[in-house]
C-alpha cells in the first residue's frame, strides 16, 4: 500500500488516501496533512467538533455514522458540513478523522 510523508511522519494509506492504521495511527500531523489536501484554510472549532463526533461514534460503532446522524449530533446541516469539508462528510471529514472508507450499497 502507498505511504505518504508529512512533517516527519509516515502514514500508510489506501488507494484513495484514507489512513490505514485507524485511530491508533491518527495524529495532529495527519489532520494537517488532510487539511492541506482538502484546501481548508484554517481549522476551526467547528472542524474539530465534526472530527470528535466522528471518532467517538467510530469507537462505539466501528463504522462511520449515517450523514443524518452526523448532522443531528453536531447540529450542522449537510450544507454546513460541505462548507467545512469541501469533499463532503465521507471523503473529507471521515478521512481527516482517520476513519476508513465505507463500502456497500452507498
Amino acid at each position: 500500500m502507498p505511504t505518504v510523508e508529512f512533517k516527519g511522519k509516515t502514514f500508510e494509506v489506501d488507494e484513495d488516501g484514507f489512513l490505514l492504521g485507524g485511530l491508533d495511527a491518527w495524529c495532529q500531523e495527519w489532520v494537517e496533512y488532510v487539511k492541506q489536501l482538502e484546501g481548508i484554510e484554517e481549522l476551526t472549532e467547528e472542524h474539530w467538533k465534526v472530527i470528535k463526533v466522528l471518532q467517538d461514534y467510530y469507537k462505539k460503532n466501528g463504522v462511520a455514522p449515517m450523514v443524518r446522524v452526523l448532522s443531528k449530533v453536531t447540529g450542522f446541516p449537510l450544507k454546513k458540513i460541505y462548507e467545512l469539508f469541501p469533499s463532503g462528510p465521507g471523503k473529507g471529514a471521515c478521512k481527516m478523522a482517520g476513519l476508513p472508507k465505507p463500502t456497500g450499497c452507498v
Binding site: 460503532n61 463504522v63 456497500g104 452507498v106
Partner: peptide, 24 residues
C-alpha cells in the same frame, strides 16, 4: 466479509442498526 462477521454489508453492529432506525 462484513456480512459474514457482523451481519450486513455495511458492517453495522446490532446496536448501530437499532440506533440508525430509531433516528429514522
Amino acid at each position: 466479509r462484513n456480512c459474514v462477521y457482523i451481519g450486513n454489508h455495511l458492517g453495522l453492529q446490532p446496536h448501530t442498526v437499532k440506533e440508525n432506525i430509531e433516528y429514522l
